[in-house]
Design a protein around this nucleic acid. Structure first.
Lengths: 343, 343
DNA sequence: ATAAATAATTTACGCGCGTAAATTTTTGGC
DNA sequence: GCCAAAAATTTACGCGCGTAAATTATTTAT
């Protein structure tokens, strides 16, 4: 295959017999040149090893082919998975994904936005930190770059938002738990960094009251993204000091639940549904590890394939249109109950 | 602060009274200009909002400030964590990390290397897929770009390799297990994608033979990166068909162990050390979730802070020297036994 | 204070490509 | 086979910066 190396488009033009502007058009969009010309170019590309200089391209293009993806915490397999799906869809759309994690850190999120701005992305998909996001910085960024938010929202920033319908998903779970055993207490962080957590708390309270039951919150301390640790330590404390008040616990998310399960196990509490078990524990999100906990975790699955797909579609159509959305559109997806052994 | 926006270095030169070449020097390396000049530049940067065009910079520089980081599977929290540490160290070194995951996929790894090559990185840190890596492609890449491998090695590719001393770590674990109970069987994938897995198998066999014991391999099928699932299904099969042959199981890695624990739990086998337990299970790596399994997993911790630090130091010094290593250096770190409840 | 060393400036060119306008060639419909 | 439309080519300029060489200004040492 690759014979002599080609140094730039000019050289490729000489050896291929195609003019440089036409080659430029081809690399911008292969379908923008005649089929016969495309064949000739691709034949030349087979024999000569050449790829356009990405820096020279991006310097002169009005718009780059870069799409930024910002997630709050990549070490969380949930975000790793959704980022992977998004990356694939972005590539499929002919763009170049740039994945950045904020590592749960405000300053890092700001730097990520800064860093993205300096590469002039065509658009950005962002799952913000939430309470710890620098709203002013995010606002400035969204004013410059077409941005679609997902997972959680800050104010009405961005051109669109795709996320979970927390009232629906939590409501479904609470009703399920109530109809199959004791009403659940709600296990959560006292001051969560994630706005979804507040929505889930409220959804829990509202559903309980709707059912004529009195809600009970078990709130634990912690303000990091080490949710398993927080769930474990808070769970241990709650169990040992008998702050549970019921045999059914609904955790605000699966990672907290994983920690809570570890605490229950350590305390010798058998978790599961039925007379021979001491405790029921449910989670929320259908985290990749939820099916491998002991016992497997009953939870509500987020449709992250849908969230990813719709988010990418939204940013691509924004880019294609070249316009900004007239108003922000919010789309919420339903969660799906996943019955396993734990509750 | 930011008054009028500056469009390029030329404009910054006029308003700051510093010549453009000097500004260029400053942005290349702030310490390369006189302190008084630096002060003046930084003062101007305070009042005028300007950042150099990254594309124009990289187009003309001999060497970019980009450092690529390639991991085989970012949805594995182990790699997510090590990538995070590496990213931080790279930034600290004044470079720009570009994180890419191969998602366990050969084609994706090739594309990652391709993609990296087109951004002309100063250097690359890479944890290869292993058996599924395209050796020829990797070889071609390493010939072009200074590359340091970590976690696992392919042939003697790259300028340096940093990883775990598997014989030491597995040996330690085997000896620990033998001295505290029955000798372990070794639970692993039949044809692992990861070369480390082979080294661990061999280390297990050698240590057992050294102790005058007969090694026993429990091999399960599976060739994806969904290790928990493979461990669970293989574990279920091994337990139900009584293929264990001992009450002690050493898993080739923690993710397999997490799956195996789920299988043991489902079968009603109590896992832990002591007369009241049916089974001991140990893992390897000290995965971020290992302390939250039920029961908490006894394992061998990889010193990934050391691996990350040394890898980054190596690539930075390679870049600084501007030379290629005369010969590849391999550095192996010891694993540390982490005693928890499971074994 | 003077010379030597260091740093900043001026001038000038080039990197590889995008893009626009004017021109020529090719294509498809009749 | 001709003609209008579409596509490719030629020509030419510019993007924002790196970098080199020659010159001038500033600092440091003597």
């Amino acid at each position: 295959m690759q014979n002599s190396k080609i140094r730039n488009m000019e050289e490729l033009a000489s050896v291929s017999g195609i003019s440089r502007p036409t080659l430029s058009k081809y690399f911008n969009d292969p379908d923008s040149v005649r089929a016969s010309t495309r064949k000739r170019i691709e034949a030349a590309l087979e024999t000569y090893d050449y790829r356009p200089n990405i820096y020279a391209m991006n310097q002169n293009r009005r718009l780059t082919k870069n799409i930024g993806i910002v997630v709050p915490y990549l070490a969380d397999p949930f975000f790793a998975e959704i980022a992977r799906v998004i990356e694939d869809l972005v590539i499929e759309g002919g763009f170049r994904p740039i994945l950045l994690s904020s590592h749960g850190n405000t300053q890092q999120e700001i730097e990520n936005l800064d860093s993205l701005q300096s590469i002039r992305p065509a658009g950005v998909l962002m799952a913000p930190l939430g309470r710890n996001s620098d709203v002013a910085a995010a606002e400035r960024f969204c004013a410059e770059v077409p941005t679609v938010l997902f997972d959680n929202s800050i104010g009405d920033l961005g051109e669109a938002f795709f996320g979970l319908d927390n009232p629906q998903s939590v409501g479904t779970m609470v009703k399920y738990l109530c109809s199959t055993g004791e009403p659940p207490a709600f296990f959560e962080m006292r001051t969560p960094t994630n706005p979804n957590a507040y929505k889930r708390r409220n959804a829990y309270i509202e559903t309980m009251e709707m059912l004529g039951l009195s809600p009970q919150l078990i709130q634990v301390d912690g303000d990091t993204w080490e949710f398993e640790k927080i769930g474990y330590e808070g769970g241990l404390d709650a169990i040992q000091n008998r702050r549970l008040g019921t045999n059914t616990v609904l955790c605000s998310n699966d990672r907290l639940a994983i920690g809570f399960l570890a605490a229950a196990y350590e305390c010798g509490l058998r978790v599961g549904r039925g007379p021979s078990y001491a405790l029921r524990v449910a989670g929320h999100d259908d985290h990749p590890y939820a099916r491998f906990t002991c016992p497997p975790l009953t939870t509500v699955a987020q449709d992250y394939a849908a969230i990813a797909t719709k988010s990418v579609e939204a940013i691509l159509s924004l880019i294609e249109s070249g316009e900004r959305a007239e108003s922000r559109v919010t789309t919420l997806f339903s969660g799906k109950l996943i019955e396993r052994v734990s509750a």
